[in-house]
């Protein structure tokens, strides 16, 4: 692709991202859908089980918030697939495709708009967590790195959502499928409880799952503690997710549109 074509593709991508952001502004409840579940889990686990699991709810909250951030970002990344699927089934894509724009522009636009969605989701979650008593133990730089890393994590895994979004027929099916994938991934990790009491097979998985490693990296960044090992692990997972799902997503996208 020539640089001029690439430049055009990006510009069209930005125009379509603007559309995505407009849609977020007009339908904030759609954003709430993916934010509310993590907040419910945050409140429920902290006040119901926090005391029993960690001695007191404050200690548990410090452990839980970084994990819930991972859950939140996975939920938010699900929207990309649902949104793209909606566009395809409603015929909006036909209009774009009948125009002389780069084929990748709608995809670029969807992913760029996703970044805005992620930022809003994380902000809402952090505000709620702070109200509940969560405090960053490190500093603003670490907080920024943690937020940035979470966004990159979401961008890496959103390709799985785009892939599913292009494979399944309806937006509802995509939403259902992603929920089924994300729930066990989130619960089969160290987000809510330590892995030491899990059966061997589950512990083996939970210790190396991307959700656990990412949660540990964020705990290190926000609460202090070991960062290097979980961060390396999460980065490997992100690279792997992109390596697997980016080609699959673009393949399914080309086949569908």
């Amino acid at each position: 692709m020539s640089t001029i074509a690439l430049d055009k593709g990006m510009r069209h991508g930005f125009s379509l991202a603007w559309r995505g952001i407009l849609k977020i502004r007009k339908n904030p409840e759609q954003l709430m859908d993916v934010t509310i579940a993590p907040i419910v889990f945050l409140a429920m686990f902290t006040y119901l089980f926090g005391g029993a699991l960690a001695g007191n709810t404050d200690a548990y909250l410090q452990m839980l918030v970084p994990g819930i951030m991972v859950m939140n970002i996975l939920q938010a990344s699900m929207t990309a697939g649902v949104q793209l699927n909606t566009d395809v089934s409603k015929g909006v894509f036909d209009r774009f495709r009948s125009m002389p724009i780069a084929r990748s522009a709608p995809l670029i636009g969807a992913v760029l708009a996703d970044i805005v969605r992620y930022v809003v989701c994380i902000m809402v979650l952090l505000v709620v967590a702070t109200v509940m008593g969560f405090r960053v133990q490190t500093g603003p730089v670490e907080l920024l790195v943690a937020v940035g890393l979470t966004i990159v994590f979401g961008l890496a895994f959103c390709w799985a959502s785009v892939f599913v979004g292009m494979l399944l027929k309806t937006p509802q099916a995509v939403q259902g499928m992603m929920f089924v994938l994300i729930m066990p991934l989130t619960f089969g990790s160290n987000v809510f409880v330590g892995t030491s009491t899990m059966p061997g097979w589950l512990k083996a998985w939970a210790d190396i799952s991307p959700v656990s490693l990412m949660a540990d990296a964020l705990r290190g960044l926000l609460n202090g503690g070991a960062i290097a090992a979980p961060l390396t692990g999460s980065l490997i997972w992100m690279v792997a997710a992109v390596a697997v799902f980016f080609p699959l997503a673009t393949w399914a996208y080309r086949k569908r549109v």
């Binding site: 559309r19 007009k26 015929g91 909006v92 009948s98």
Partner: peptide, 17 residues
């Protein structure tokens, strides 16, 4: 594509916009 305009069987504008 630079010559044509398409009006689909189902109105293909973005309903939210």
């Amino acid at each position: 594509r630079s010559l044509i305009g398409l009006t689909g069987q189902y109105a293909s504008v973005d309903e939210d916009l």
